Amino acid sequence: MNPRHVAALALAGWYLMTPPIIEKAGGYEADFNAPISRWSVNSPFDAASECRAVNGQLVLEQKQRLDKAPIHSLDWAVAQRLVTSQCISSDDPRLKGN
């Protein structure tokens, strides 16, 4: 591997990112179709493994919340948003948007 590539990988961090919430038909839901550049950083991490571990725990917790909240309520949309969170490298070109 090229030494510059190794250095670039060492500088890259990770973000646990969540989609935005939108109002739709009198309720709320996570906007899965929004580009990653419009998603919010929930937490930054130094390593992908750390991000994935936190994300896995978060998804488990929020699935229970999602099952209990009234559909299309704000609580339901927040849980839906967190269940669909993703770990994204800080140097991912999709973060720049158009």
Rank of each mutant, 00 (worst) to 15 (best):
M1N: 03
N2P: 06
N2E: 08
P3E: 05
P3Q: 04
R4A: 07
R4K: 07
H5G: 06
H5N: 07
H5C: 04
A7R: 10
A8Y: 02
L9F: 02
A12G: 03
G13R: 07
G13K: 08
G13F: 01
Y15F: 11
Y15T: 00
L16F: 01
L16V: 01
M17T: 02
M17W: 01
M17R: 07
M17C: 04
T18P: 00
T18E: 00
P19K: 00
I22C: 02
I22S: 06
E23M: 10
E23W: 03
E23R: 13
E23P: 03
K24M: 07
A25W: 05
G26E: 01
G26Q: 03
E29M: 07
E29H: 03
A30Y: 00
D31Y: 06
F32Q: 08
F32A: 07
A34I: 04
P35H: 06
P35K: 04
I36S: 06
I36T: 13
S37W: 05
R38T: 08
R38S: 12
R38H: 10
W39G: 01
W39C: 01
V41W: 02
V41L: 03
V41P: 02
V41Q: 09
N42D: 15
N42L: 15
N42E: 15
S43Y: 10
P44A: 12
P44R: 10
P44S: 13
P44C: 05
F45C: 01
F45Q: 01
D46R: 11
A47W: 08
A48S: 12
S49V: 13
E50P: 05
R52D: 14
R52A: 12
A53R: 12
V54Y: 09
N55G: 07
N55I: 06
G56K: 11
G56N: 14
Q57R: 11
L58T: 13
L58V: 09
V59H: 10
V59G: 07
V59N: 05
V59L: 07
L60H: 10
L60D: 14
Q62W: 07
Q62M: 14
K63I: 09
Q64K: 14
Q64A: 14
Q64G: 11
L66R: 08
L66S: 06
L66A: 03
L66V: 03
L66D: 04
D67R: 13
K68L: 14
K68V: 08
A69T: 06
A69H: 08
I71A: 13
I71M: 11
I71H: 11
H72F: 15
H72Y: 15
S73N: 10
L74F: 13
D75L: 11
D75N: 14
A77Q: 04
V78D: 12
V78E: 15
V78H: 12
V78L: 13
A79R: 05
A79W: 02
Q80G: 10
R81Q: 15
L82P: 05
V83Y: 11
T84A: 15
T84N: 15
S85Q: 13
S85F: 04
Q86M: 12
C87I: 03
I88M: 11
S89Q: 14
S90Q: 13
D91Q: 14
D92Y: 05
P93D: 06
L95G: 03
L95E: 08
N98F: 11
N98S: 12
N98H: 12
